[in-house]
Amino acid sequence: MEVIMEPPLRQLSKDSIKVWIWKEVIENIIGTAVLIVLFILDRIFSWPVWAGWILYGLVGLTVMGMIWAVFKVKLLQKQWRYGINEDFLYVKSGALKEEYKVIPMTKVQSVSTNEGPLLKKYNLSSVEVSTIGRMHVIPALPKAEAQKLRQQIALYSNVEEEDA
């Protein structure tokens, strides 16, 4: 029997790429600053040779991370899908490691929308869905869509669980 489930269709906002790039830039600036401080300390206190190797290794990883980030943010946005009906929330994400989650509405405990400074800049909002012991995040949706989704999930999940 060949059965295939329809994949969820709703996408993240295109602006999520910009948000993630900003985030990467900020993180990399902080990371680079930390590395520079470490190099200065290395000079001043003449740390052992292996400390230098580790530092060069970290520089390599940071540079690789920066290059990878350019592809990563585009792939993330391209691959993200979510879907919702009265009974389930579906979340699909990732390219190299593809993940598909099915979360029953009855198991949702609370749902929230969050807007940090970067998300605010592009009028976006993230949606966090808490279940028992786990949390699922839809990272960047247009604000109005996120608010609507929060209300929808709250409404659909407002039923008594049949099974404890």
């Binding site: 609370s110 969050n114 929060r150 209300q151 407002n158």
Partner: peptide, 22 residues
């Protein structure tokens, strides 16, 4: 009527809805 909503607006604005049945 069916849920409690908690909002906090500082650096990050966050709005959390908890249905009473939960």
């Amino acid at each position: 009527p069916s849920a409690i909503v908690v909002t906090s607006k500082l650096f990050t604005t966050s709005t959390k809805t908890i249905p009473y049945s939960k």
